[in-house]
């Protein structure tokens, strides 16, 4: 990286209260304060958000797609965690 080359930041936007922050994209900025301001201009200029997070891309540790099996498969065989697993007699409401 040359010194005129700014680091990359990931931007997360909360589109409205009650929702989680969602990844919107990335941008370059010299530091967190500027990253936040750039994110405001870039990702919320049509009022798409009420709150922003910026995270240095280098600070993110991601699961590897190669680990997909050991990481996520154990969850896939536990359908009883999902409500659709259970049969409810017809006519029973509010369940």
């Amino acid at each position: 990286m040359t010194n005129s080359d700014w680091p990359l930041w990931e931007v997360f936007v909360r589109s409205r209260r009650g929702l989680s922050h969602t990844h919107a994209g990335s941008l370059h900025a010299p530091d967190a304060e500027m990253a936040l301001r750039n994110a405001r201009d870039l990702y919320t200029r049509r009022s798409e958000g009420v709150s922003l997070w910026v995270v240095p891309s280098s600070a993110i540790t991601a699961s590897s797609p190669d680990e997909k099996d050991p990481f996520f498969e154990p969850a896939a065989d536990k359908p009883y965690r999902h409500p659709t697993f259970y049969e409810i007699p017809e006519g029973v409401r509010h369940l």
Partner: peptide
């Protein structure tokens, strides 16, 4: 400035 003020991302 970011480097000086310890604000640079890792």
């Amino acid at each position: 400035y970011a480097a000086k003020h310890g604000k640079a991302a890792a």
